[in-house]
């Protein structure tokens, strides 16, 4: 099949659509979930509506981060000027993989952060007095959960900017092109699917910690220590996926 620049454009447009399309599934659900819990809380505790509104807003902003990362990758794919004919099949595969990595990669962290935000709003509704402690804990937990979507962003950017042009590799065979393109697709899928689990898991830890922070505010040092320890262990599988992605991008010849 004759290679034209249109093939790279097809891959870039598909990647852009998949990236922002998949990410907005959980972004919409998650942000709505936090708003729902906060609204219910305001019904029970109308006098603490200001602190509930603030926590809801902060939680929604952190949850939206995953969607914003996907939007950035989408816009880069559309307008980043990657459609040069020298890129060849390798560039097409890398662009599609970058979109898939970021789209799938923001699914889990966004579910996790929205759970943490919802639990924090619920907890503030029970214990309005401790709203600052709970919001602080929620922010730390959400940041831990979003780490895995930052891994996906990193791999996406590497796929976009540090994969070689096909024309710049001397004496590349059809088999070599096939191997490298599949390695790029594999790297995107590894980090994309691999961050779903850790994202949901860490969000679960952060949510439970925020809930307990509201019930037993005196144990906050214990709760926060357990949250950090548990989140760090839960993150390890995302780090394995990151290692496999790096190997597939850089070590495959």
């Amino acid at each position: 099949m004759e290679f034209t620049v249109e093939i790279i454009r097809v891959a870039a447009y598909m990647g852009a659509a998949l990236s922002v399309g998949i990410a907005s599934i959980t972004c919409g659900t998650g942000v709505g979930y936090i708003a729902g819990i906060a609204s219910r809380g305001m019904m029970h505790q109308p006098e603490s509506r200001d602190s509930l509104f603030r926590t809801m807003f902060i939680g929604q902003a952190v949850t939206e981060t995953g969607g914003i990362f996907s939007l950035v990758i989408s816009l880069l794919l559309l307008f980043g000027g990657f459609d040069v004919v020298e890129g060849g099949w390798l560039r097409a595969a890398a662009l599609l993989a970058a979109g898939l990595a970021m789209g799938l990669g923001s699914l889990g962290p966004v579910i996790g952060t929205s759970y943490a935000g919802g639990e924090a709003c619920d907890s503030i509704c029970r214990m309005p007095k401790y709203n600052l402690t709970i919001t602080g804990n929620m922010l730390i937990g959400q940041a831990l959960a979003q780490t895995s979507s930052i891994f996906a962003l990193l791999v996406s950017l590497l796929l976009l900017y540090s994969t070689p042009l096909q024309a710049s590799i001397p004496n590349i065979t059809a088999g070599g092109i096939l191997i490298r393109s599949f390695a790029y697709l594999g790297a995107g899928l590894a980090i994309g699917i691999g961050t779903i689990g850790p994202g949901i898991g860490i969000g679960n830890v952060a949510g439970k910690a925020s809930r307990m922070m509201g019930r037993f505010p005196r144990q906050r040092t214990y709760i926060m220590r357990t949250m950090f320890l548990g989140a760090a262990v839960s993150q390890s599988t995302a780090i394995y996926a990151l290692i496999i992605s790096f190997l597939l991008i850089f070590a495959v010849k």
């Binding site: 889990g108 996790g112 191997i179 599949f182 390695a183 697709l185 594999g186 790297a187 995107g188 899928l189 590894a190 980090i191 994309g192 699917i193 691999g194 961050t195 779903i196 689990g197 850790p198 994202g199 949901i200 898991g201 860490i202 969000g203 679960n204 830890v205 439970k208 357990t226 949250m227 320890l229 548990g230 989140a231 262990v233 839960s234 390890s236 599988t237 995302a238 394995y240 996926a241 496999i244 992605s245 597939l248 495959v252």
Partner: peptide, 23 residues
Amino acid sequence: LLGAGICMGIGALGPGVGEGFVA
């Protein structure tokens, strides 16, 4: 190579959710 990526991706799903549940 594609299989390696899919293997690590799907393989990280379960442990991630499970460890988070434990914690």
